[in-house]
Design a protein around this nucleic acid. Structure first.
Lengths: 130, 130
DNA sequence: CTTGACCTTCCCATTACGGGAAGCTTTAGA
DNA sequence: TCTAAAGCTTCCCGTAATGGGAAGGTCAAG
């Protein structure tokens, strides 16, 4: 299976697959012509990586999850720990964004949004007390 | 006022201030010795930029906001438009993160987190139907 | 006069890829 | 069979917004 097919099978762009090989997430063998020869196990790993990435796990977290995935003597507690740490990061990011949303929403609601220059948004950014 | 003082006054690292000069957000003059000489207007701009960045505006959005800030004939509608576009991005990002949080939370709640290898988190990433 | 705190520029590293060039290989069609 | 298109390869550059750190000039204090 060439990279194009592996891309279709996994839903990942070929570029991304090459990158994952470069950083050692997968190690597909090569055919005599130099083309990567993807096995089922490789496309499974790629699909796994795609899903983990879509849940927001970083590449290094994916690497850890992948090694647990391949370790039959893993403890699910180890997987859950990785997930819990990621969950903390997600929740923190959400909290930050909600803070931004609330502040910005407040400023926007106070801005007339007309032809005049007066603007509470700019006033706030400039450091006014209002 | 040297960069160290400007950093304290604005709350931005000196490195960041140099970067903002490099990309043309500020243009402090230089002293005879080559040191940047920050004026009040420069530190005000820096403070403005710091606040805008903390609300999540990109550098390019900051550039636009700064030009509106300096344009006394601006229309507040223009400012509000920039803010509204940014608000959309924030809300979209929040929605994505909440989706991740919910999915991950569900998987975590179903993971025993013990010494055994069975793990719904990995099962899901691997593409199981469960 | 020296030491240490500033300042300068310059270059590399980060994250996770995407774009695109130059050049093979394979495949499909006339 | 020849050719053109499609697919593959590696390689290098660019992204956003800084942070780290080196090499070296400047300044203030003792």
């Amino acid at each position: 299976m060439n990279i194009g097919e592996a891309a279709k099978a996994s839903g990942l762009p070929a570029k991304t697959i090459r990158y994952y090989e470069e950083i050692g997430l997968i190690r597909p063998p090569r055919d005599a012509n130099g083309y990567r020869a993807f096995r089922e196990a490789d496309t499974h790993k790629l699909t796994f990586l795609g899903r983990a990435r879509s849940l927001g796990f970083s590449i290094e977290e994916c690497r850890r999850l992948l090694s647990l995935y391949e370790d039959r003597s893993r403890a699910s507690a180890d997987v859950k720990r990785v997930a819990a740490e990621h969950m903390r990061q997600i929740e923190q990011k959400i909290a930050e964004l909600e803070q931004m949303r609330d502040t910005l929403g407040d400023l926007m609601s106070r801005c007339q949004g007309d032809h005049r220059p007066d603007c509470p948004i700019l006033d706030n950014l400039a450091g006014s007390k209002g």
